[in-house]
Simulated scan of single mutants.
Amino acid sequence: MPNSHHIEEFAGLPVAEFASWEGIRDDFDTAMRWAHNRGELHEELPPSYEPLFRALADPGSYAWRLRTVSPRYRRPFETLPEYLDRFTSLVPGKKLRALVVGNLVEDEDDMDAERVVGELVRRAGGWPEVRSLFFGEVLQQENEISWIDLCDLAPLVAAFPKLRRLVVRGGSRELGLRLPEHRWLRELTVESGGLRPEVVRDVCASDLPGLRSLELWLGDEDYGGGATPDDLAPLLSGGAFPKLEHLGLLNTRGADSWVAPLAGSEVLARVRSLGLDLGDLTDEGGRAIIEHAGAFAHLERLGLHHHFLSEDVQAGIRAALPGVDVNLSAPQEPEVYDHCDTTELHYYTVVSE
Rank of each mutant, 00 (worst) to 15 (best):
G171H: 00
V168K: 03
L90I: 15
G210P: 00
E191D: 05
R183G: 03
L208E: 08
W217H: 12
L250Y: 04
T282L: 04
D85L: 04
E119Q: 14
D58A: 15
L80K: 06
P155F: 10
G316S: 08
E40L: 13
W21V: 08
D27A: 10
L328A: 01
L276P: 03
R122V: 02
G193H: 04
G23D: 13
E335A: 06
E144Q: 11
Y83L: 13
P47M: 15
P180H: 10
A288H: 05
L156T: 08
P197N: 04
L66P: 06
L153H: 11
R54D: 06
G102C: 13
L56F: 14
L99W: 13
R164G: 02
P51R: 05
K95E: 15
E137K: 03
E198T: 03
E142Y: 10
T189F: 01
T228M: 11
H292W: 06
P155W: 11
I145V: 08
L304R: 02
P71W: 06
C340S: 06
E187Y: 02
L281N: 05
C340G: 03
D27C: 07
V157G: 03
L236G: 00
A57L: 11
R86G: 09
D58H: 12
A269D: 06
R201Q: 13
G219H: 02
H36G: 04
S310E: 10
V199N: 00
G264Y: 12
M1D: 12
A98Y: 15
S237R: 08
P92N: 08
A11Q: 01
T79S: 15
K94E: 15
L66I: 08
P128Q: 06
H182I: 03
R270N: 02
R123Q: 07
D283N: 09
T68I: 07
L139D: 04
D338P: 01
T30A: 11
P180I: 01
L156Q: 09
E40S: 15
L56H: 13
A240V: 02
A16L: 07
W21Y: 12
V200H: 01
R67P: 00
W147F: 03
R72L: 11
V105R: 02
N37K: 14
S4C: 02
A240R: 05
D256P: 05
N103I: 05
W147E: 09
F77Y: 12
T349F: 01
M111I: 04
T252A: 04
R253H: 07
R123M: 07
Q332G: 00
F134A: 05
R131W: 02
L84I: 06
E43H: 14
S61I: 04
P209W: 13
L84Q: 10
L104I: 14
H182S: 04
H42S: 15
V271Y: 00
D207C: 09
T88F: 07
